[in-house]
Design a protein around this nucleic acid. Structure first.
Length: 789
DNA sequence: ATAGGGTTAG
């Protein structure tokens, strides 16, 4: 600590002392010297001293103190103005940098080539395009456009603001381009996701004799990850190894992130393990990679290691990523833990963090908690409201979604595209045509009505609300249609049983721009199925791979089995399944089974039923598989992804599995499961409930079991379905006031649906079942899905 | 270099 005597110093002594503070960034000493100067009054008005004090505060990052000294100086030179602008451009508030710049111009001080890079940096940060352009024209008038530094700053500004053409023009005009100029151009292009352009720029940079440096690599890698361009990413990796820059944390983290985004988790992990100097971003990127590709267990484990490691701080970004894992896993107790932790650390004020929590609670079906947090949040933005709205919709709670939307409008927060795309399915779900039309009007007023995603949601809403004519009108008027638009309208005609029009539209699509994708064929085939257009369906299924290069997926086979089976061609459907190039899953057999039921073919039904039983939903299930199911957890929300993951891990079957969380532990069951320690009690409970249910007129719908066994045996196998076991265990384990939330990986079975309605009445408990497609909230004998799912 | 809400089918 500096010991300052109280006598008066000469001015150069002060200056010398202040320089020392600037070098060592010692704010405490600097302040003492400032006080000393104020006390002695001798030099208080000396500009040179005030200049130094300003610089001292700037060096210590005390921008407000710097400003107060700066404002007292009567005549300030351009260097000091530049320092002040630089201070704001680095520490913010950015608009102050621009303010000081204009103040300087107003006072007639002429900016120099050092001024522009700082003020332009502020413009980039604020995306203040017009101000930036004005500054650009001033630069031209001052004849500084050819200065490398100024021009690079302009390139950077235009590129960051997304005006890549202007950036490129300036860049091309530069008399010489150093690595910083190249990096500005590359970073801007990468930032806006222009993968090909970015890679081309790097190539050109090398051909022109400038070697990429670490900043180049760090700028390029995110676009590569976004484009999932793994082989290009490997090239960069190789380059960084050759140039020995892989030991740079930023480069290592960017490489890790790139591999993660490409799904190469092993490579990502290898980089993670070999990077000795990990910071919090490195850890976050690793966790994020796991979560992105549904490796929740590894993600959560890595987070636990991060805490144990203790060398880096836990940021809201990390917590947000872990929350997404909890959300995907439906692991609310872990999520709550993170919630508590973030309150303790004060991270909860971070709005993204709050929004992640909202999304987790609402997607997890705990709307009460979501709303409680939502009410507590001091600042709510569009995303907060959107998360609540779509959360309500996903829980089948469309009414609350609409109420929340009204609240949003009342509090003056503007809805954006995502909000509207979230609210429209609520109208579809409620069959709330009036609301839907109202929202449509609102969208028109707000100027959203021509947005492609919005129109897609409108098409879906109108067709689900029974107004395919309105849906078509929206479709016709769209300025730009993407493949989702076409799929939505084709599906719309399909569910309205107007297969002919669906086919006609499909033909129109073939003459138009977007190429059909695999969903198009699902929509088309199901439209054919709903309208009995068997020949047409068969035709398109067969030409799909050769003419459209689309490999039939499980979903297409389900549609085909449905098409043939519904049409009464049971033998053909059965043989079709047998000839499938991969093993049919339970949904294929399920479609077959329902065809057998429609056409009352008991014999084939029995045969098919064996396959349904074997594969789930209520198969005997083996426990290796089971442990994998719940360690990987809540895969219910992305059925397609589940199959990819399962294939990777070498599993082919997908048995029905239900789980319930009791004080932080997940208890999972498959049908007929007797492995649980409390198995005896669970079965007793179910038998007891079964007696009560029968009193209320319950009859097991043995149509769901087409096995050749005695009626009583059929009833029993239904009674021990996984969702019933989980519900019974919930009843036994949770106090009566607590709602029971069961999650099932497949769709809930029809018999279980009727049974749980009665169980909710008998036990007077709220029971929720989240199945593969939606929530079922049971209470007092009814379900909020109104038996339609 | 890491982080939040969204539409198409069955």
């Amino acid at each position: 600590m500096l010991d300052i005597p109280s006598e008066n110093f000469g001015i150069y002594t002060y200056i010398h002392l202040l320089d020392t503070c600037i070098q060592s960034k010692s704010l405490v000493e600097g302040k003492k010297i400032h006080e000393h100067i104020l006390k002695n009054k001798t030099h208080i008005t000396k500009t040179i001293l005030l200049d130094k004090l300003t610089c001292m505060y700037l060096a210590c990052g005390e921008i407000d103190l710097a400003r107060s000294v700066f404002d007292q100086i009567p005549r300030r030179n351009v260097i000091l103005w530049n320092s002040m602008i630089r201070g704001y451009a680095w520490k913010g508030p950015l608009d102050q940098a621009i303010g000081v710049y204009y103040e300087m111009l107003d006072l007639g001080i002429k900016p120099n080539k050092f001024t522009f890079p700082f003020v332009l940096k502020a413009c980039s940060g604020l995306k203040a395009l017009e101000i930036g352009r004005e500054i650009h024209s001033y630069v031209k008038r001052s004849g500084l456009e050819s200065d490398v530094y100024v021009c690079t700053a302009l390139v950077d500004f235009y590129a960051k603001c997304g005006c890549l053409v202007e950036a490129k023009n300036l860049f091309d005009q530069m008399p010489q381009r150093d690595v910083v100029a190249w990096n500005a151009m590359i970073a801007g292009s990468s930032l806006h996701g222009f993968y090909e352009d970015t890679v081309q720029l790097v190539f050109n940079m090398q051909s022109s004799g400038t070697s990429p440096n670490t900043s180049t690599l760090v700028a390029v890698l995110p676009t590569i990850g976004q484009a999932k361009a793994l082989s290009q990413g490997k090239n960069i990796h190789g380059y960084s190894v050759r140039k020995m820059v892989f030991e740079d944390v930023m480069v290592a983290t960017a490489l890790l992130d790139m591999y993660g985004k490409c799904g190469s988790l092993d490579y990502a992990r290898r980089i993670f393990d070999t990077t000795s100097l990990k910071n919090e971003v490195t850890w976050s990127a690793m966790i994020g990679a796991y979560v992105l590709y549904d490796h929740m267990r590894e993600g959560v484990e890595t987070f636990d290691q991060m805490i144990l490691d203790g060398t880096v701080s836990i940021t809201p970004a990390t917590l947000g990523t872990v929350l997404r894992a909890c959300s995907k896993l439906a692991d609310m107790s872990k999520g709550r833990q993170i919630h508590g932790y973030s309150i303790k650390r004060g991270s909860i004020v971070d709005i993204m963090m709050g929004n992640s929590l909202l999304a987790m609670y609402s997607k997890g079906g705990i709307l009460d908690d979501a709303f409680r947090l939502f009410d507590e949040m001091d600042t709510k933005d569009t995303v907060s409201y959107s998360a609540m709205i779509s959360g309500c919709v996903q829980n089948g709670n469309a009414k609350d979604a609409l109420d929340t939307f009204r609240g949003m409008q009342a509090s003056g927060i503007n809805a954006d595209t995502a909000t509207m795309v979230g609210i429209l399915p609520a109208c579809a779900h409620l069959n709330a045509l009036q609301h839907g039309r109202c929202n449509h009007a609102y969208l028109t007023v707000r100027g959203f009505a021509s947005n492609t995603s919005i129109c897609n949601a409108l098409i879906d809403m109108y067709s689900k609300c029974g107004r395919i004519d309105f849906a078509r009108e929206v479709f016709n008027r769209m300025p730009k249609r993407d493949i989702v638009s076409w799929n939505a309208i084709i599906a719309g005609y399909g569910i309205h049983g107007r297969g002919g029009e669906a086919l006609l539209l499909f033909h129109n699509l073939l003459n138009d721009d977007p190429k059909p994708d695999y969903v198009t064929f699902i929509c088309l085939l199901s439209a054919c199925s709903h309208s009995g257009l068997i020949a047409e369906g068969k035709h398109w299924f067969h030409v799909m791979p050769q003419d459209f290069n689309i490999v039939p997926r499980m979903e297409h086979y389900i549609c085909m089995v449905d098409l043939l089976g519904r049409g009464g061609l049971l033998d053909e459907a059965y043989n079709f399944i047998l000839k499938m190039p991969f093993e049919p899953d339970v949904r294929v057999w399920g479609a077959m089974l329902s065809a057998c039921r429609i056409h009352e073919n008991i014999k084939m039904g029995e045969e098919v039923s064996k396959n349904v039983q074997r594969l789930g939903p209520e198969g005997t299930g083996n426990f290796v598989l089971l442990s994998n199911i719940y360690s990987a957890g809540g895969r219910w929300d992305d059925a397609a992804n589940v199959r990819i993951v399962q294939k990777e891990q070498g599993f082919k079957k997908s048995p029905g599995c239900s789980w319930v969380e009791i004080t932080g532990t997940v208890h999972a069951f498959v049908g007929g499961d007797r492995s649980h320690p409390l198995s005896m009690k669970i079965y007793e409970k179910l038998d007891e409930l079964s007696v009560e249910m029968k009193k209320l007129g319950y009859q097991a719908d043995i149509g769901f079991v087409l096995q050749d066994v005695e009626v009583e045996e059929k009833e029993r196998s239904l009674l021990y379905h996984s969702e019933k076991l989980a519900v019974a265990f919930g009843i036994l384990s949770l106090c009566p006031s607590k709602p029971i939330v069961v999650t099932k990986n497949l769709r809930i079975c029809g018999d279980c649906h009727s049974a749980i309605k009665l169980i909710s009445k008998i036990t007077k408990r709220a029971i929720s079942v989240r199945d593969a497609s939606r929530f079922h909230h049971f209470s007092d004998g009814t379900c909020n899905c109104e038996d339609f799912w």
